[in-house]
Amino acid sequence: MVKVSTYFAMSLGAFLFWESMDKLHVWIALHQDEKRERQEKEAEIKRVREELLKQAKHRDSLL
């Protein structure tokens, strides 16, 4: 009986471990995706800002 209960407890523990690792993996992947999207958005904002500054300097030099 002890062997059966030990086997059951170890099986349950392994199942819980793998489930928690799966959830952790999904959370990390989502976090990385959000971070990448934020970096891409910041890079786009920086590029547009630099382009607008160039246009403003060009306009000022023409006046």
Rank of each mutant, 00 (worst) to 15 (best):
V2R: 03
K3P: 04
V4E: 11
S5Y: 09
T6F: 09
T6A: 14
Y7I: 14
F8W: 14
F8L: 12
M10R: 03
M10W: 03
S11D: 07
L12N: 08
L12S: 04
G13D: 02
A14E: 02
F15G: 14
L16W: 03
L16F: 13
S20L: 10
S20C: 06
S20E: 11
K23Q: 05
L24A: 12
L24C: 03
H25L: 15
W27L: 05
A29G: 15
L30I: 12
L30A: 09
H31F: 15
D33R: 04
E34P: 03
K35P: 01
R36A: 14
R36C: 06
R36I: 07
R38V: 03
R38Q: 08
K41W: 00
K41T: 06
K41I: 00
E42V: 08
E42S: 09
A43L: 01
E44F: 02
E44T: 05
I45E: 12
K46S: 02
V48R: 04
V48M: 02
R49N: 02
L52D: 02
L52V: 07
L52T: 06
L52M: 06
L53P: 01
Q55R: 14
K57C: 05
H58L: 11
H58W: 03
H58G: 06
R59Q: 14
D60F: 09
L62Q: 11
L62S: 07
